[in-house]
Amino acid sequence: MSDMLSIEQREQAWVFTLNRPEKMNALAPELVLALTEGIQAAHQQKIPLMIFKGNGKNFCAGFDFSDLDTASEGDLLQRIIQIEIMLDLLATSPSMTIALCHGRNFGAGVDIIAACKHRIAAAGTSFRFPGIKFGLILGTRRFQNIVGTQNALEILSSTRTFDAQEAQKIAFMQEIREPEQWPSLIEQAEQNNAILSDVTRRNLYKVLYCSAESDQNLAALVRSASAPGLKDRIRAYLKPN
């Protein structure tokens, strides 16, 4: 397991902590792989509850652009696909999944939050989907399913930042709770999760979180990311105004 991710393995819950605070927990390939393998391991052991949070000043800054100059467009496309595979694994999980988020969060980092069934933010948390500026359609349908088409269209097309209060208003967040309250929230989540049997929970999630859209999401992502000039579009987005 990578040093970029720590997993606290409790009896009824695994707590995943993104641990790359010097890079705002940006999704380097090693971190994406560690998340993918950690989620798969939790599924294999039938862990009923997975919780995701970030170390440092935020949950996750999204895609890591630090090697943009040396990576090929094929490399970037492969990395983006791996992120979508990880997101789909999380979104279709038979476990209860909870995101505990804080600070400024962007792109694929917000997509991780959207892939969780229950989402809690600290006051002052903010969210932004900038990827559409360089033509990337990643996690769009999952966000739409939570907040509705009109809210998703307005937020995604404007690429604007929205805060925790607005997120709660449009149901992207269920609660606003400060980090010092999170340990008790985790304990309460473990108790609540025990109300249903594992079989009942899995059947319920299979109905509520249909995996039929998985291939459509991946296809939309590949079409958007594989259009010629991906690196140039990213550079234009990153260029200071």
Results as ranks from 00 to 15, higher is better:
residue 91 A to L: 13
residue 199 V to M: 08
residue 171 A to F: 04
residue 68 L to S: 11
residue 1 M to S: 10
residue 199 V to Q: 03
residue 87 L to N: 14
residue 120 I to H: 05
residue 123 A to G: 06
residue 81 I to Y: 09
residue 79 R to G: 06
residue 228 P to F: 06
residue 156 L to K: 02
residue 75 D to P: 01
residue 195 I to Q: 10
residue 70 T to C: 04
residue 40 Q to Y: 07
residue 127 F to A: 05
residue 164 A to V: 09
residue 45 Q to N: 14
residue 169 K to L: 03
residue 15 V to A: 02
residue 198 D to L: 09
residue 88 D to T: 15
residue 234 I to M: 10
residue 99 A to M: 08
residue 127 F to T: 05
residue 184 S to F: 01
residue 52 F to N: 07
residue 76 L to M: 15
residue 114 A to T: 12
residue 28 A to N: 09
residue 233 R to C: 05
residue 144 Q to L: 10
residue 218 L to M: 15
residue 34 A to H: 14
residue 2 S to I: 04
residue 72 S to P: 08
residue 155 I to L: 15
residue 213 E to R: 13
residue 3 D to M: 15
residue 109 G to K: 10
residue 87 L to Y: 07
residue 64 D to N: 03
residue 204 L to C: 14
residue 78 Q to L: 08
residue 226 S to M: 14
residue 227 A to Y: 12
residue 31 L to Q: 09
residue 173 M to R: 05
residue 23 K to I: 15
residue 41 A to T: 15
residue 60 C to K: 01
residue 218 L to S: 03
residue 67 D to W: 00
residue 197 S to W: 00
residue 37 E to L: 07
residue 228 P to A: 01
residue 237 Y to W: 14
residue 166 E to T: 06
residue 234 I to C: 02
residue 53 K to H: 12
residue 41 A to G: 09
residue 222 V to P: 06
residue 158 S to E: 07
residue 199 V to P: 01
residue 113 I to K: 01
residue 50 M to P: 06
residue 155 I to P: 08
residue 8 E to R: 05
residue 86 M to C: 10
residue 146 I to G: 07
residue 108 A to Q: 05
residue 108 A to W: 08
residue 43 H to G: 09
residue 108 A to E: 10
residue 222 V to F: 12
residue 19 N to C: 13
residue 238 L to M: 10
residue 117 K to D: 11
residue 182 W to R: 00
residue 183 P to I: 10
residue 59 F to A: 07
residue 90 L to A: 00
residue 204 L to D: 12
residue 150 Q to R: 13
residue 140 T to A: 15
residue 29 P to A: 12
